[in-house]
Design a protein around this nucleic acid. Sequence first.
DNA 1: AGGTTGACCAAAT
DNA 2: AATTTGGCCAACC
Length: 105
Amino acid sequence: MGTYNRDNDAISRFCRVLAEIPRGQVVTYGDLAEMAGYPRAARLAGQVLRRLPGDTKLPWHRVINAQGRISLPEPRAQRQRERLECEGIALIKGRVDMGKYRWQP
DNA sequence: AGGTTGACCAAAT
DNA sequence: AATTTGGCCAACC
């Protein structure tokens, strides 16, 4: 199978990877998908994140797009920016310095 | 069933 | 540097 169908096993794989991202670091949607075992399924990562409960303890804010930009619509983008800054990740002209903060295990 | 829609991405223009 | 293009893949009409 290799296909994703609302099976919780797939979702928990995304969540497991998400939980491992260290404080003060970020990954891209594509990175998250690949680490979860779904290479080239960046949009799938976005769908999983979108469905996370609003009160999740998972570090959803550590996931940004491949250009180092926040991919959320306002007003959630503002919350993500705040959370990142709380961890010492500043956005310079709307961008995270991927060379400095991208997590590579 | 089949078309459209995204918290996407890399390569080409 | 900014846009466009083609690929991606499950959810949702």
